[in-house]
Write a protein that binds this DNA or RNA. Structure first.
Lengths: 214, 214
DNA sequence: GTCTATAGCCGGATAGAC
DNA sequence: GTCTATCCGGCTATAGAC
């Protein structure tokens, strides 16, 4: 059946990307991982590059759907960190975030990949924006924060740390601990009284204006 | 002269990595970029992989040396952000950070690359640790912060955002603006009076203990 | 140290049988 | 839709002349 083979190829592409990396994927390695004939890559997707682009979107859509519900339940920065940590632990073991890292690396020198990767990444940032907007709604940051920008910073940092984890697991753990501290500091600001919060708000506003000029 | 050819190959590797990515580098593309014969890759470095590992260290050593002085002059979080932004702008245009991203992508499936990339990355984190320790010395964060962890988070995020910049320049700009806001918030904490700072310190300590248990 | 030449493998992609 | 067979180009690596 056609749609079955298509799905096998998409999943095979993700598996190949995970085990071989962007430098090691080929129509042959993908077909082997998918358990189908090599020529079918070209019949169904035209070229290896087009298959890679399609697989990035396909895989990301599935993952984002799986985390939509946990994200919905998040009500505080602390809970967001907890979900983020779980996502990192689970998907790091499954190797699903690495796939985006590999695509991102390939995208640096391949405009077609760049478009596909940007779209796949956008699926994540949309969700992160939603959560951040809700979580920051009551904090001093919420009124001035560039939530879309923050969402992109979170997504980019996440991928960077995912790539780091493979070469330096201890460093990765330490980095996550440090980010927890940062979150704790921000939550502390939320718990300040009205006067201090107003001062914090002013400080951030001033700093933002300064950074926009720079 | 031998050392001349070695250097040409090292620089050619960086150039090839920048223009072709990890998926596109080969003894042939490297030799072409270096302007030397292809067989010299194997004479001087044994294999393409060994040349890539050597080039990652070689290039990173140069870059870190170039930023040692600006880093030395940094006295506040604000100044650190300014230097970081300059580094991002300049090296993004020159494509020197992308090289580490490409190595990191290759390292996910190649243990030899992983070791080389960890070592190259360590050159950066050592410098960042030094600056962070100095900058945070007088803040509530300084006493409890996991400075090595924070340095690794900064390095990983930097590479993630560098990779993002190529596929989404606007998103990258927005992400940097958001991080400036974060820095502004942290600086605000530094400017609090002694009573508030003591409270912030306690909040962070409690949160850190909580996150260590988790 | 540097070059040419080449062995031998793996890659993308297609033609054409079924 | 799926398969086999194949073209052809680029790849790593080495042998051997200079």
């Amino acid at each position: 059946m056609s749609s079955d083979t298509r799905d096998r190829l998409l999943q095979g592409t993700i598996d190949a990307l995970r085990t071989q990396g962007i430098a090691g994927v080929s129509a042959r390695t993908i077909a082997a991982a998918a358990g189908v004939n090599q020529a079918l890559v070209f019949y169904h997707f035209g070229s290896v590059d087009e298959l890679l682009a399609a697989a990035a979107m396909w895989s990301t859509e599935q993952q984002v759907a799986a985390y939509r519900e946990p994200f919905e339940r998040v009500r505080s920065l602390r809970e967001l960190q907890k979900v983020g940590r779980e996502l990192h632990t689970r998907e790091s073991a499954a190797g699903n975030v690495t796939v985006l890292g590999q695509m991102l690396a390939g995208a640096q020198t391949n405009p077609a990949f760049a478009a596909a990767t940007r779209d796949a990444l956008a699926l994540w940032t949309v969700e992160i924006e939603r959560v951040l907007a809700r979580v920051l709604a009551d904090s001093p940051l919420g009124e001035v924060a560039d939530v879309p920008g923050l969402a992109r910073a979170v997504a980019a940092s996440f991928i960077g740390m995912e790539l780091l984890a493979a070469v330096d697991p201890e460093g990765d753990k330490a980095a996550f601990r440090a980010l927890d501290q940062l979150g704790a500091l921000l939550e502390y600001l939320d718990d300040l009284g009205p006067a201090s919060r107003a001062a914090a708000r002013r400080a951030v506003r001033t700093a933002v204006r300064r950074s926009v000029r720079a």
